[in-house]
Design a protein around this nucleic acid. Structure first.
Lengths: 153, 153
DNA sequence: CTGATATCGTTGCGGCTGCAACCTTTTGCG
DNA sequence: CGCAAAAGGTTGCAGCCGCAACGATATCAG
């Protein structure tokens, strides 16, 4: 009779799965390291290459600019990142991690990689590859992939 | 140098993908039908079988009980669901859709199924099966699957 | 029966979030 | 040059959310 089974509805399933995985990680970030998810995203983005503008982090992580703005404010207060002038455009401020920030980042990474490994351990190597590939296709189709100009290093 | 690539980090990717898919759907629910996601979940759960208690919807959808409580209040105000006594336990209140509620639900379903189809259209039949299977395994491993007693009918 | 404990559901409250508006600087166009 | 439009970033505000506490009912042990 019902023409839709919520429990088999892909958007719902994705949402529930993501909430579960991210929720657990958020507790790790908060309880053990004192930061939240937006703040983690800023650190993780700067860890790839510094310095970066807030706007770059916004595009790269597809996070709302006010969330990033507030995360940056808090990380500055905590002394985990610092401003690094601007790249010729006085509207933007480039950001980079402080030593303290990088130390915290390096401390967090093993925890979250281990957690990722645990979650994916229920899949075989083949299944992981297929899953990864399907996610990539979905990301591509939904336009979630970063622009080329975000990639040129 | 960086030991973690945020853009390849599964929790982040799942979260971004789920946010994108659910965000689009939430706009459909809101702009076109005047309800939000928690309210949609209540309707979609009751559509499978009525009557159900709020607590059943909480367990079934893994949504916080205050969100369900508020969604139920609003759906009652809107006349989309109604109370249907209790099943011998006076703590709980059973809920069912009104005619108006079911009509709205039947109107929403084609839209969201079409949207689901569009999103998944970037995958081949095989890829969809693999993806579905991987999601099921992850759900199972994370304990997201409904209890047996939620299944008996 | 009776008190301890657990469950269903609601609500006050503090915190986070997105929207819109804003300031500043830059870009584009005539 | 000069003005309109756009982009980087911040902030006020209103709304949503989860936590914790609560009232009511049910269950269980003694």
């Amino acid at each position: 009779m019902p023409r839709l089974q919520l429990l088999k509805f892909m958007p719902f399933r994705l949402n529930r799965l993501a909430a579960e995985v991210s929720g657990d990680l958020a507790k790790v970030y908060a309880e053990r390291f004192g930061i939240d998810i937006p703040e983690w995203r800023v650190l993780a983005t700067l860890a790839v290459r510094e310095p970066r503008s807030a706007q770059f982090i916004v595009r790269c992580t597809r996070t709302h600019k006010t969330r990033i703005s507030r995360a940056v404010s808090r990380l500055l207060e905590l002394g985990l990142i610092e401003r690094a002038g601007n790249g010729g455009d006085r509207r933007e401020t480039l950001l980079r991690m402080t030593e303290k920030g990088r130390a915290l980042y390096e401390e967090i990474v093993p925890f979250v990689l281990e957690r990722e490994r645990q979650v994916l351990s229920c899949l075989s190597e083949d299944e992981r590859r297929s899953f990864d590939r399907a996610l990539s296709k979905l990301e591509q189709a939904l336009g979630l992939v970063q622009d080329p100009d975000q990639l040129h290093d």
